[in-house]
Structures are given as C-alpha cells and as structure tokens.
Write a protein that binds this DNA or RNA. Structure first.
Length: 395
DNA sequence: AATGCGGGGTA
DNA sequence: TACCCAGCATT
C-alpha cells in the first residue's frame, strides 16, 4: 500500500502539469478551481478560472457581487447550481474564511465529499482522501474493484482504498500531491480506453494490469442512450426592434436558474399571451441540445415588440427586460440562447470566445435547405421560411 | 438508490 | 453514436 502511495507522489513530482491553480496556495482560488472542475475538463476550465480570478479575486469580492455578475462569468460552463452555490458559499464564509478541515468544508454549499477532500489536502495539507472519476478508475484497476464505481458499494470501496492509501503516505510527502497524482494518472495514463500500462508507475502493483484485465475495469453501469432521453419541446420568442431585444431571467432555482434567455414557454401562444404580443405562426429556427437527462428542442418565433414588459407575467421567470445587443454579451446567457442569437449577424458576438463558434458572420443565406454549416450547435433555420422571411417583418 | 443538472471533447 | 469529464443536492 505504501509502495503505491510513494510511486504516485514520485511520478507526480516528475510529470505534474503546470496548471494555473497549481501556482497558488490561496484556498479560495483552489476552491474556485475545484468547483469549476466538477464534471468539467481541465482545458475547458482554464480560461474561465483566469477570468473569474481577475473579476472576483477574493471571497469578499465574490460575496459582494450580484448573482447576475456571477452567472455571467459562469455562462457556458454548465451546471449553474455550482455558480449559485459558490456565490452562496462565499457569502457564508465571507467573514470567517474557508474552513481548513474536510469535515467542516462539507458544510459549505456546493462542497461535497470530493471537493472537501481536494481543498483540505491541496490547500491545507490535511491527509484527506478524495475520489473523483479519475481516481475511481485508477483504484478500481489497481485493486481490482469489481463493483460498479457509481454504486454505493463501489463508492464505499473506493473511498476506503483512497483512505488507506493516504494513511500510508510517508510523512514528508504532501497529501495534495498524492491526490493530484492519482488524478493526473487517471487523466494521462490510466485512461478510460487504451490505458498506457507500459509507462504506468503502478504497473507492478496493479491487479488489473497483472491479470490483463485493464480493459474490463472499472465496471460502470451503462447510461441512457440518446434516444432514451425525454424530449422537452419549448417555444422561444425572438422579439427585436432595431438594436434592442427582449430577454427574460429564469427563476433562480432549477434548470438554467438565474440565466437570461429568449422568453420561452410550452408553446408560442402561451408566451405571446403572457407578453401581450403578436407572434408569427411559423418558427424561424430550431435549436436542439442534449442535456444529461433530457433533450431540448427549442422552436424560435418572431413577434412584435411588446409595449410594456411586466415582470412575472411569464411563468418560470422573475425578470423580463429589453437589452441593446451590445449588452447581451455581459449577461449570464446559457448556451442555447447564445447559439440561437449567434446565428444572426445583427447580434454582436462579444461574449466568451468558444472556439467552435466558428463564423458568426460568414455564410448565412444558403437558400437551400441543409442546415447552415459551420457551427456545432444544432440550430438550423427552418427551410421553407428562410428565403421568404429573413429578418425584420413584424415588429 | 435514483434523479436533476450543461456542455463539450473525442475515439 | 456513446462515453466521460477533478460531482453535488435532493428525493
């Protein structure tokens, strides 16, 4: 057991990637990184973390910021309860500072078993174990754990092993190095498919490798296929007049809670009635998006500009307002609405560069059917409408 | 124990 | 496609 722990920290010292949050000892900075990294890849997180730390450099700065600003900085990362909880957590520890022990960190909103272990070990040097997806894979192979790693039994076995490993770590070595070393191993060598056992420092200790079972472990329950996800159909209204567009803010809990989007409802007439506008009968675009547990299909309709906006008129939202196109980029807008808006060249694209946003400007047109090319989003303009309508009309 | 909760990279 | 990502909260 101590052989394994030692091999991990020694390997980590050798190959440790130079990530931005590894250059600091600030517990808050590490906290932010760990929350962003929940179910999110390192490469995705890096630019978000950099912008976040520049905008909210301290717990106090975050605690004092309006939730709107917090969500704007998070927009695009997904799982927005992470941002809401981080904000709430910052307010909770605004005066006292972040607790240093894993057991106390667990009381902070958004900090679960993994994140508590990560902050305690990395920022405070506590010998606290952790298990994430990477560590689960590594330990399941090294110790030949055959229980489903997502199951209660599997998690129990994994945390138990992780705890033993941490207890076996010789004292001069940093607990954070063991934990990060395990994760690093899972991310770079002990990968889900095609693990590179030939260069793995644990190969001599790994039951899976020794028995040639590295492709059979870990055992993980199959997830729902794409066609098994329930489809949620929504109607969104695109209400624009000149430079101004109508956006609504979702209530702070639940899906996309607190984010701004084109006002949506179950059908176009519901939304039109709530806002007191007329709306075109035919959709100008559809946007499909796959979430963890459902598929989203948003039909986009053009309509007239409402004379007066009443907060609370549309269920599910707590605010509704007009924004100039230039302001949209500084709002917390989820990916679906961002993708829809970006299809129209009238919308300035000054929000976070998302690599694949490709050409907000190019093409369009394609008066032929075939979805507009170039973007990874599934937004596409309905075929029959596009040549006829294009922008303007109504309003 | 199961479900809700985003978005994107990749084999 | 399907899989998975430095998971957490709620039921």
């Amino acid at each position: 057991m101590d052989d394994v722990a030692l091999a991990v920290v020694q390997h980590y010292a050798k190959v440790r990637r130079d990530l931005p949050w590894r250059r600091t000892h600030d517990p808050y900075a590490i906290w932010v990184s760990e929350v962003m990294l929940q179910q999110t890849r390192v490469q995705t997180v890096i630019p978000y973390w950099e912008r976040w730390m520049a905008k909210f450099p301290t717990v106090r700065a975050l605690a004092d910021a309006p939730l709107d600003d917090v969500l704007a900085a998070w927009a695009g990362l997904g799982y927005y309860s992470r941002a809401r909880n981080l904000h709430k957590g910052a307010q909770a520890v605004r005066e006292s500072g972040l607790p240093s022990k894993a057991s106390e960190l667990r009381d902070v909103p958004g900090i679960g078993p993994y994140t508590a272990g990560a902050i305690a070990s990395i920022a405070f040097g506590e010998k606290a174990p952790l298990v994430d997806g990477n560590v689960a894979r590594v330990l399941a192979r090294v110790f030949a754990i055959t229980a489903d790693i997502k199951s209660t039994a599997g998690q129990k076995a994994l945390w138990s092993r992780a705890g033993e490993l941490m207890a076996a770590l010789p004292s001069p070595h940093a607990p954070g190095a063991l934990n990060q070393g395990l994760m690093e191993l899972g991310a770079t060598i002990c990968t889900p498919t095609g693990p590179r056992c030939l260069v793995c420092p644990l190969v001599k200790h790994c039951r899976a490798a020794i028995e040639g079972r590295q492709d059979e472990l870990p055992v993980v329950a199959k997830r729902k296929g794409l066609d098994e996800l329930p489809v949620l159909a929504r109607a969104a209204l695109w209400l624009q007049q000149g430079d101004e567009i109508v956006l609504a803010r979702r209530r702070a809990e639940g899906l996309f809670g607190g984010l701004w989007e084109l006002p949506q409802g179950d059908d176009r007439l519901e939304v039109a009635r709530a806002l007191g506008v007329t709306v075109d009968p035919d959709a100008v675009a559809y946007h499909d998006q796959v979430l963890s547990h459902r598929r989203l299909r948003i039909a986009v309709f053009r309509g007239g500009m409402p004379a007066r906006l009443v907060a609370g008129a549309l269920s599910g939202y707590d605010r509704i307002a007009r924004f100039s196109l230039g302001e949209v980029g500084s709002l917390g807008v989820a990916a679906a609405t961002t993708a829809i808006l970006s299809k129209y060249e009238a919308t300035p694209w000054n929000s976070i560069p998302k690599r694949s946003s490709s050409s907000p400007k190019a093409t369009r047109r394609s008066s032929k059917g075939s979805a507009a090319s170039g973007t990874t989003s599934r937004t596409r303009t309905s075929q029959k409408r596009r040549s006829a309508r294009r922008r303007g009309s109504t309003s």
